[in-house]
Amino acid sequence: MRLLIVDDEVDLSESLRRGLINEGFVVDVANDGVTGAWLAHENPYDVIVLDLMLPGKNGYTILKEIRAEKNWTPVLMLTAKDGEYDEADAFDLGADDYLTKPFSFMVLVARLRALMRRGAPERPVNITVGSLELDPTRHKVTRGDAVIELTAKEYVILQYLMQNADTVVSKLQIMDNAWDAAFEGSENIVEVYVGYLRKKIDVPFGLNTLQTVRGMGYRLVADTPAP
Rank of each mutant, 00 (worst) to 15 (best):
G94M: 08
V49G: 01
I48G: 09
I62N: 01
F205S: 03
L76G: 00
A30R: 01
G119K: 11
A222I: 09
M1D: 13
Q163C: 09
D7A: 08
S104P: 00
M106W: 09
V47G: 10
H139I: 14
Y98C: 02
L12Y: 01
S15P: 04
L210D: 01
R18S: 14
I21F: 07
K81T: 06
L161V: 11
S15K: 05
P74G: 04
G59K: 01
M1F: 12
E191S: 14
E154V: 03
T79K: 03
V10L: 14
L39H: 11
R138L: 15
A90F: 01
E149Q: 13
P136S: 04
D96V: 03
I127D: 05
M162V: 11
E133K: 14
G130S: 07
L172A: 13
N164Q: 11
D28Y: 09
H41G: 15
E69Y: 07
L134E: 05
R138Q: 15
W179Y: 15
K200D: 01
V34M: 12
E65D: 15
E69N: 12
T73G: 06
E187N: 08
P44F: 08
T209Y: 00
D89Y: 02
L76E: 01
G185E: 10
A120W: 02
F105A: 08
M175G: 06
A222G: 09
F91Q: 03
I201S: 01
Y155L: 15
V190N: 03
G130I: 02
P44W: 04
V34E: 11
T35F: 05
V107H: 12
V156K: 14
Q211H: 03
L220G: 03
L150R: 05
N208Q: 12
Y218G: 10
S15Q: 13
P227E: 04
N164S: 11
I48V: 15
K140Q: 14
A120L: 06
D32A: 11
V141M: 11
A226Q: 12
T151V: 08
D8G: 10
F205T: 03
N177E: 12
G94I: 07
I189D: 07
T212S: 12
L39V: 07
P55A: 10
T137F: 08
K171M: 12
I127P: 03
W179D: 09
K101V: 03
Q173W: 05
G119Q: 10
V169N: 00
G206M: 07
Y98L: 04
L132K: 00
L20F: 13
L39R: 13
R113T: 14
W72G: 00
D135M: 10
I127E: 13
V6K: 01
A37L: 12
N43W: 09
T212F: 03
L150I: 06
A222S: 15
T73V: 15
E149D: 15
D96N: 15
A182W: 07
E191K: 10
P74H: 02
L132H: 00
L150K: 06
M116I: 15
V203S: 09
T73Y: 01
K199P: 00
G24H: 09
S186W: 04
V29M: 11
W72V: 09
M53P: 02
P121W: 07
T167V: 14
D180I: 08
R138G: 15
V29C: 14
